[in-house]
Design a binder for these strands. Structure first.
Length: 296
DNA sequence: TTCCAGGAGAGAG
DNA sequence: CTCTCTCATGGA
């Protein structure tokens, strides 16, 4: 199955897939390979044209709709970025990474991935998820690329916490095992979760062991499409303390400030500030910080 | 060797 | 309510 989407505006594949919201994509030459919803996708971008290949045969109309949803292409990104572009600092971040979009990823994989993400780093999170998939998922291949589907809750529940632990999860093995069981016995209804508004979804997620405010916000933002979610990790905390608040601040203070300052699309603002700080070594130099007080 | 990473839970005060 | 300590792992 091969799909060509032309005249794509305000979309950058590299920034979108390499901005820390998904741990599943691998770049080979100018193509990105990953497993989404049980099959391999190969995606290339040539300026305004996206070429998406699937290892499965599927209905073109349905597949197109799924890809628009996954890549967040149905949203007017120019409008959103204009809405959060309220000073010269974030203007620079937006200018640097324009086209980066928030994905709408599969819910179970996102829940599991961000449970594993706590007190952990990107490279190791990717490694753990790959190991889990290789051991418990199904092998899929396409175009010479081999990967594995993310294991279902049932498979992880059957495997048990000890086998999960062997994949390098550390103390988070029990959290993932319990979450898998919660899905199976209906304590967490993933389909119902998609129908809830932001606050209800967040609090439903926080009932899970190992899911606090930050992880719940990541799931809301990277899977459920709640653009008002603001995950506060060590980087976002650091960015707001140094750039905007100019003092140490608790998560609650950062939430309150950011939501009134950036507005309802604060989740998108967060993604640009996060990726900018990670890729711009002098992001908190004195002259750089001054941009925060200037108009864009 | 110590520190850190897209944190959260338990316990003390 | 807030503060502190601990939880595996591996790369810097």
């Amino acid at each position: 199955m091969k799909l060509k989407i032309k005249n794509v505006t305000d979309f950058n594949l590299k920034y979108t897939l390499e901005s820390g919201q998904s741990f599943r994509w691998n770049r080979i030459d100018d193509a990105y390979y990953g497993v989404v919803e049980g099959r391999i996708l190969k995606i290339c971008q040539h300026s305004g044209t996206l070429i998406i290949e699937s290892s499965d045969d599927e209905d073109k109309g349905i597949f197109t709709a799924q890809m628009f949803h996954y890549l967040d292409l149905h949203r007017d990104l120019a409008y959103i970025l204009n809405a959060v572009n309220v000073d010269a600092y974030i203007d620079r971040a937006i200018d640097r990474f324009r086209g980066m979009r928030l994905l709408n990823q599969e819910i179970w994989e996102t829940v599991a991935s961000f449970i594993l993400s706590q007190n952990n780093n990107m490279a190791r999170i990717r490694k753990i998820i790959r190991t889990l998939s290789e051991r418990f998922g199904y092998k899929v291949d396409y175009d010479g690329y081999v990967d594995w589907t993310f294991p279902t809750p049932q498979i992880l529940a059957d495997a048990g916490p000890e086998e999960i632990y062997k994949c390098g999860t550390g103390y988070r093995a029990g959290y993932l095992y319990n979450a898998a069981n919660d899905v199976i016995n209906g304590r967490l209804d993933l389909n119902a979760l998609k129908q809830l508004d932001y606050n209800d979804a967040k609090h439903e997620l926080m009932k899970l062991e190992g899911v606090g405010e930050k992880v719940a916000d990541c799931i809301c933002l990277f899977s459920l499409g709640h653009l008002t979610a603001l995950p506060i990790d060590v980087w976002i905390k650091r960015i707001f303390e140094r750039v905007y608040l100019r003092k140490t601040a608790k998560p609650k203070e950062i939430q309150d400030f950011a939501k009134q300052y950036f507005g309802e699309y604060v989740g998108y603002a967060q993604q640009y500030l996060f990726h900018y700080a990670q890729n711009q070594p002098n992001w908190d130099d004195a002259e750089h910080l001054e941009l925060r007080f200037k108009q864009k």
